[in-house]
């Protein structure tokens, strides 16, 4: 069994030279539900094979009932190369399509840095799946692997 999602398509005002003049960007974004000690929240997140961690805005920790004051932390840097603090906490993540639902616990990062999109990166997400990016169909396929810790 695999989870399958179409890419989300975003309208662009100008023709995109690298996409033969197409005026929309297909991006592998899907809705993921985060479940914490006292709340849950569903957010669009980008499947990003270049992201080391799964990363969400710090504001969400409050919504989920997570106290980050004593949380282990590290630093991260994105395209702008500005260092930002990342604090880690355990949450339950859930993704589903019309045939399959997957829910697992993971340590994910929270940051006060401005994120273009929350990221489903290697640690906490992609490490547990075999991900196939069907560029021709603009479709993403996720299959749990042997390390998947959830149900």
């Amino acid at each position: 069994m695999s989870l399958r999602f179409s890419y989300q398509r975003f309208k662009i005002k100008h023709p995109i030279p690298s996409l033969a003049g197409r005026q929309e960007r297909p991006r592998p974004i899907l809705a993921v539900t985060l479940i914490g000690p006292s709340g849950s929240c569903s957010e669009d997140a980008l499947l990003d094979t270049g992201a080391d961690d799964t990363l969400f805005p710090e504001a969400l920790a409050t919504v989920l009932g997570i106290d980050l004051s004593q949380a282990p932390s590290g630093t991260g840097a994105g395209f702008g190369m500005h260092a930002a603090t990342v604090r880690y906490a355990e949450v339950t993540l859930r993704i589903a399509d019309n045939q399959e639902q997957r829910e697992w616990k993971a340590q994910i990062g929270f940051t006060s840095a401005r994120l273009r999109q929350p990221l489903l990166g290697y640690a906490g997400a992609l490490q547990f799946f075999t991900a196939t990016f069907h560029g021709d169909r603009e479709e993403l396929e996720l299959t749990v692997n042997a390390t998947y810790p959830g149900n």
């Binding site: 999602f5 989300q8 479940i35």
Partner: peptide, 22 residues
């Protein structure tokens, strides 16, 4: 994590993305 946690609504991301694209 306690057992009384709220677990949110079920999101079918396949359908969600298809509708978003429409």
């Amino acid at each position: 994590m306690n057992d009384n946690r709220k677990t949110g609504v079920f999101i079918d991301s396949k359908r969600y993305n298809e509708n978003r694209n429409r």
